[in-house]
Design a protein around this nucleic acid. Sequence first.
DNA 1: AGCGTCCAATACCCTTTGGGTATGTCTGGC
DNA 2: GCCAGACATACCCAAAGGGTATTGGACGCT
Lengths: 92, 92
Amino acid sequence: MSLVQLEYFVAIAEEGNIGRAARRLHVSQPPLSRQLRSLEEELGAELFKRTARGVQLLPHGKTFLEHARRVLAEVEHAKSCLGGADAQRGKA
Amino acid sequence: MSLVQLEYFVAIAEEGNIGRAARRLHVSQPPLSRQLRSLEEELGAELFKRTARGVQLLPHGKTFLEHARRVLAEVEHAKSCLGGADAQRGKA
DNA sequence: AGCGTCCAATACCCTTTGGGTATGTCTGGC
DNA sequence: GCCAGACATACCCAAAGGGTATTGGACGCT
């Protein structure tokens, strides 16, 4: 599991659509599909139900989403507590 | 920044010695040196003072260590809350 | 002072990972 | 039946990550 996987997962969850999440993240769609699948395999749980209109969070996915957000928030906090200058630049 | 970088950083901090941390993590020493430096560059702050006997946490490093531990703990929590089976296996 | 030891840093190579493009497959609407 | 939209797959290439070998520097001992 990696931090980018978590970022991708959160974006997909928020968009409900892998392609749209890809545009938001400025990457193309296939990498997102792959990272998501790889994450699901590592966790041993399906996070989304794939439909013809996009993806939909499953119960496991909802649970994991909260954790993922907390991890990412903690990371941001860690970054912002150090360099000051760098962190501020990053925020903009 | 990646999760492995945080794991490496914590191990180095706990061992006070990159080579020993490397053995503990079952990797060789150079990758750890590199990842640590890369982390410091990204954060824009030196985390350790390099000495002839090993490395020593600087104030920034101590602060960051707490955050890093929190992130990793949160990740473990996220994992353990899903698959059950997989998570239990991972714990052993 | 000189030597040996220990540690981190660097150089170089190779494998693996990750992203991009093109295409396939399926579902739902007209 | 056909088209449009969405995820999955195949294939390629660049980048990241780890390994081995080596260098450079600091400490301790004699």
